[in-house]
Design a protein around this nucleic acid. Structure first.
Length: 574
DNA sequence: GCCGTTTTCGGCCCGACTGTTTTCAGTCG
C-alpha cells in the first residue's frame, strides 16, 4: 500500500460521491487530498507514524483518519458502502468524454445500464435518446466519444505532442486575422504527458478566425465551435482547444489557459482574499466593479503583487506563496547545460561510432560529454565485456586526444545486478571518468530489496550517478517499487548524483522527486541517454522536468564548468 | 471535508459551449 494506492482510494471516494450527487465541496476535498498525497515523496506510512499527515494542505483530521483506517485494516468502510451502491462499471461510464456523473447516474437508475457495453447498446437502440432532456445528438456524441476512447487516443507523451503542435502551429500561420498564436496548457507547463492541446491567440474578428480554424484540412471532427472558443480533433487524433480574445486581454488569456486547474483555482482564491476576481479577460475589483486588462502575463501577476511565475511551476504546489514572498527559484535553463553525461555509441546499443556522437555534442555547443555504453549484463543491449570496455577506454582516449574544442570523458552505464553489486569490477570502474549505475532487470523485486539494491550501488565509491532512478516507461511500465526517501538520503550521504533522464518516455526522475532531491541537498544531473545524435535534442525535456522540480543551476551537476565538474568528481566517497 | 494575515463558522474559481430547451443543467478546462 503506497501513496499512489491511497490516493487512488481517495479519488474513488470522490468519484462515487459525484455519482451520488453529494456536495461538490466534499468531492473536491477528497480530490484535493488524493492530489496532495500523490505530490508527496515521503511514504504515507511514515507520514502516519510521525503525525505528518494532517500537516499536508488538503488533508484534515477526517481524511487523515480515513487513511489510517485504510493502512491498518486494508479497507475503508465508507468506500465499501459507496461501492455497494453503484456497480464498478457505472463509475467507468464517466471515463467517456462528455459523460459526467449526472448522465452516468441516470442511465444506471433509469435504464439499468451497468457497464460500457450496455451503455453503447443503449445509445445505439434509441433508449438513451429517449431520456427526457436528451436526444439523438447526445446519443451520437456518446458513441463517437466511446470510439475515441477505444482507439486510446488519450494522453500522449510530451515528446510526441511537441512536434505535432509545432506542425499544427505552422499550418495556423496562414489563418487570416489571427495573431500571437501560442500553445498553452500542460504543453506550456512541459508536463510529461499531454491530454489535449490548448492554442491561444488574438484577433480583431474572432468569429471569422474561429470559422477558419475549424475548417482547416487537419480537422477530423469539430467537438464545439463558438465565437471565442472551439474544440476540434485533428487527423492524428489530438484534441485541440482554440481560444481567441482581443489583444488587450492577451496576458490574462495566456495565464488562464496555461493553468493548471489547481494553480488557477488557488490563484483565484488568493485573489478573492484580496477582493479581486480573476477570469480570462482580466481582473475585477469585487467592491468597485472596476476591471483591468493585461496584454502580458508579467503585468497580470504584478497586479496581484506576485512575481511572474514560470509556466513549469504552475501546478498548485506552493508557487503562489513563493511568488508572494519573492522567493521563486531561479530556474535552470537550457543554456545553462554544458555537457551530456549519458551517451551511447555503436559499441553497445547506440547507432553511431564514438566520433559521430562527439561531433553531435560539439555541434550543440557543449563543453564536455561522456561516452557511457552498457555493461555486459544487458545482453539485449550489446553490453560490453570487460575485455571490450578496456578496448573502448583506449578508443575514447584516442578521440579525446584529437578533440581540442570539447572534453570527451570515458564512462559506463553499468548495470546494477539484483543484489546491488555492479557489472564491472572496481579495477575497471576506477579507470573510468564517470559511472552511471542503472537498474535494467528484476523490476519486480520487493521494495525493500530494490531500495537496498540501489543504495548498495551508490555506496560503491566509483559510482557517480544513478541513471533513470525509478525505471518507469510512460504508458508502458510503472516505476519499480522503491523507497525514494531512502534513496535520496543515501544519495546525499554518498554524494551520488541522481539523473533526470530526458528521454520523453522516461522523464525519470519526475518533477516531485527532483524537487525533493533538491530540497535534501542531492545533486541532479540532466542527461539524454542518447542512442543517436538526434536524441541529444531531448535535453529540452529533461531541463523542463528539472524546472518543474524547482531546480536551479547549482542543483544540476552538468551546469558546472569542466573544471568544476572535475573538482566534483574528486569529491570524497562514502 | 477543509480552512483561516478579517473568520473555528461560513465560505469554498470562473466562464464557454452544447443540447434540449424557451431558461438552464451538464460538462469541460
Amino acid at each position: 500500500m503506497n501513496n499512489a494506492d491511497v490516493a487512488a482510494a481517495l479519488a474513488e471516494v470522490a468519484e462515487l460521491l459525484e455519482l451520488k450527487n453529494e456536495s461538490g465541496f466534499r468531492i473536491r476535498a477528497y480530490e484535493n487530498a488524493a492530489k496532495a498525497l500523490s505530490n508527496q515523496t515521503e511514504d504515507v506510512r511514515s507520514l502516519v507514524a510521525t503525525g505528518g499527515l494532517v500537516k499536508i494542505k488538503g488533508i484534515g483530521s477526517g481524511i487523515a483518519r480515513t487513511i489510517e483506517e485504510l493502512l491498518s485494516t486494508g479497507h475503508i468502510v465508507y468506500l465499501d458502502q459507496l461501492r455497494s451502491e453503484f456497480p464498478e462499471g457505472v463509475r467507468r461510464l464517466m471515463s467517456v468524454p462528455g459523460v459526467g456523473p449526472s448522465l452516468a447516474r441516470r442511465v444506471y437508475v433509469e435504464l439499468g445500464v451497468t457497464n460500457l457495453d450496455e451503455f453503447r447498446v443503449a445509445a445505439e437502440d434509441g433508449r438513451l435518446a429517449s431520456l427526457p432532456g436528451l436526444g439523438e445528438k447526445s446519443a451520437q456524441n456518446v458513441l463517437r466519444a466511446m470510439e475515441r476512447v477505444n482507439k486510446q487516443e488519450s494522453r500522449v507523451s510530451i515528446g510526441k505532442a511537441v512536434p505535432l503542435v509545432e506542425e499544427l502551429m505552422d499550418a495556423l500561420k496562414d489563418v487570416p486575422g489571427l495573431d500571437n498564436l501560442v500553445p498553452g496548457g500542460s504543453l506550456r507547463r512541459w508536463a510529461p504527458t499531454i491530454g489535449d492541446i490548448d492554442i491561444m491567440g488574438t484577433s480583431t474578428d474572432a468569429t471569422v478566425a474561429m470559422g477558419c480554424l475549424v475548417s482547416l484540412p487537419q480537422v477530423r471532427q469539430v467537438l464545439s465551435h463558438g465565437h471565442t472558443k472551439s474544440t476540434i480533433i485533428t487527423d492524428n487524433g489530438l484534441q485541440v482547444d482554440f481560444r481567441i480574445v482581443e489583444a488587450e486581454a492577451y496576458g490574462s488569456l495566456v495565464q488562464h489557459f496555461t493553468g493548471s486547474r489547481d494553480h488557477n483555482i488557488e490563484l483565484r482564491e488568493f485573489a478573492l482574499s484580496r477582493g479581486q476576481s480573476l477570469n480570462e479577460y482580466g481582473i475585477q475589483d469585487v467592491k468597485s466593479g472596476t476591471r483591468m486588462s493585461f496584454s502580458d502575463e508579467t503585468s497580470f501577476y504584478a497586479a496581484l503583487d506576485l512575481e511572474l511565475i514560470p509556466p513549469e511551476l504552475r501546478e498548485g504546489r506552493g508557487e503562489i506563496s513563493a511568488a508572494r514572498a519573492r522567493r521563486l527559484p531561479n530556474l535552470v535553463t537550457l543554456g545553462d547545460i554544458r555537457g551530456d553525461l549519458h551517451v551511447h555509441t555503436e559499441w553497445s546499443d547506440g547507432t553511431l561510432p564514438i566520433e559521430a556522437m562527439v561531433d553531435a555534442a560539439r555541434q550543440r555547443g557543449y563543453e564536455y560529454m561522456c561516452i557511457t555504453d552498457h555493461s555486459g549484463g544487458i545482453g539485449v543491449a550489446g553490453g560490453l565485456s570487460e575485455e571490450r570496455i578496456l578496448q573502448q577506454i583506449d578508443a575514447v582516449h584516442e578521440v579525446a586526444g584529437a578533440s581540442s574544442d570539447i572534453h570527451v570523458l570515458m564512462g559506463s552505464e553499468v548495470d546494477i545486478r539484483r543484489d546491488g553489486s555492479l557489472d564491472f569490477p572496481d579495477q575497471i570502474l576506477e579507470r573510468l571518468d564517470w559511472v552511471v549505475a542503472s537498474v535494467h532487470s528484476g523490476f519486480n523485486q520487493p521494495e525493500e530489496q530494490m531500495t537496498q539494491r540501489i543504495i548498495r550501488a551508490m555506496e560503491n565509491p566509483h559510482v557517480d550517478a544513478i541513471g533513470h532512478p525509478t525505471g518507469r516507461l510512460i504508458g508502458k511500465r510503472e516505476p519499480y517499487a522503491v523507497d525514494m526517501e531512502a534513496v535520496f538520503a543515501a544519495a546525499a550521504r554518498t554524494r551520488t548524483a541522481l539523473e533526470i533522464n530526458s528521454f520523453p518516455e522516461r522523464l525519470d526522475l519526475v518533477d516531485v522527486h527532483a524537487r525533493r532531491a533538491k530540497d535534501l541537498g542531492v545533486m541532479l544531473v540532466i542527461n539524454t541517454d542518447a542512442h543517436a545524435p538526434i536524441h541529444l535534442d531531448n535535453i529540452r525535456y529533461g531541463v523542463a522536468m528539472a524546472r518543474r522540480g524547482w531546480a536551479e543551476p547549482a542543483n544540476v551537476l552538468n551546469t558546472k564548468t569542466f573544471g568544476d565538474l572535475c573538482d566534483w568528481l574528486k569529491r570524497d566517497g562514502p
